[in-house]
């Protein structure tokens, strides 16, 4: 089996364990490629990719763009703030206009959950979801699991805690799907107000005490508090949040084991983790960023290989 079961990467929910393993095996090869003196392969010379970002992003957009360029694809970038979206154009119209310029793959971030799924039904291109509202962020979950696999050898059987703002997090949902598919045990930890009501339906445990959570886990994935998505107050103050759910070096040192610390970025230093934790050996935050490029190369490569060539014209 060396082909994805899907033509789009819309979410982890829609792909299989075999797909994830294939993406990881392909990413292994790309990781070697991006550590060569010349970090570029010519595989996607005849593929054009549009990066459509209807929501702000630095890391993800750069990572996708770099991945695409390392595969020799042609890349066009589009951000909503400087586009016709402001003038009232619909999503399908915007994308169809871009596709009429012969684009094969669309990488899209959008504030509305399900935007990628909607688009995949209406336009003729492979869609990669780069984050849709509070729904999914599949490539982030893939690179998180890939980083765990790289550090601990495998994901199966590991205990992973996701700490912080679960309610507004697309990273959390995608991570839960991916980790469970790969056989990890997942719990979430955070203030009750930031944990979705029906989280147990996903088979995820809830822990409200951070120390107990860290004691249980092998890996802690620290999420950012997404102030921009909060229309009401979910906790009394940032200081109180930090006191209860912020990870400090002294807290980690007081445990009788070494917990791996991950963070999807951007970090609010001093809020969810302190600086000395972010910069410690236990943190694999920068490995996650490096792996992000390899994972995105693998996803795009595998999706591109499913696009049929049209030699008729």
């Amino acid at each position: 089996m060396s082909e994805l079961s899907v033509n789009h990467l819309l979410g982890i929910k829609y792909i299989t364990k075999e797909d994830i393993e294939l993406i990881f095996e392909t990413a292994d090869q790309f990781k070697e490629v991006i550590n060569r003196p010349i970090k570029k392969v010519p595989s996607l010379r005849d593929i054009t990719i549009a990066n459509l970002f209807f929501e702000n992003s630095t890391r993800t957009r750069l990572s996708f763009e770099l991945a695409e360029k390392r595969l020799s694809a042609d890349v066009i970038n589009f951000s909503a703030s400087s586009s016709s979206v402001k003038k009232g154009e619909t999503l399908v119209d915007t994308v169809n206009n871009i596709l009429s310029m012969k684009v094969d793959i669309v990488v899209m971030r959008h504030p509305n959950p399900g935007a990628g799924i909607f688009l995949s039904k209406h336009v003729d291109a492979s869609i990669v979801n780069a984050g849709d509202g509070a729904h999914e962020h599949p490539t982030q979950a893939l690179l998180d699991c890939y980083s765990i696999r790289e550090r601990l050898g495998s994901v199966a059987g590991k205990n992973v805690i996701i700490v912080g703002d679960i309610l507004h997090s697309r990273v959390a949902l995608s991570n839960i799907y991916a980790l469970q598919t790969l056989g990890a045990n997942v719990k979430v930890c955070g203030p009750k107000s930031l944990i979705p009501k029906y989280i147990h339906k996903l088979g995820v445990g809830v822990e409200t005490n951070l120390r107990a959570a860290l004691q249980w886990c092998d890996v802690a994935n620290m999420l950012r508090v997404q102030n921009e998505r909060m229309d009401i107050s979910y906790f009394p103050s940032t200081r109180e949040y930090t006191q209860q759910y912020g990870v400090t070096k002294s807290l980690l040192d007081s445990l009788d084991k070494e917990v791996i610390i991950m963070h999807p970025g951007p970090i609010n230093r001093g809020v969810e983790i302190t600086s000395d934790v972010a910069d410690s050996k236990q943190a694999i935050i920068l490995n996650q960023v490096e792996n992000g490029v390899a994972i995105r190369m693998a996803v795009i490569y595998l999706l591109a290989s499913k696009i049929k060539r049209d030699d008729s014209n």
């Binding site: 060396s2 392909t26 292994d28 090869q29 595989s43 005849d46 595969l71 290989s305 060539r309």
Partner: peptide, 18 residues
């Protein structure tokens, strides 16, 4: 990743270790 039959052959191209 350097082959000239990417998307031309029916079989997907699986990578090996370098």
């Amino acid at each position: 990743f350097y082959r000239d039959d990417f998307r031309r052959s029916d079989k997907p191209l699986a990578a090996n270790q370098t």
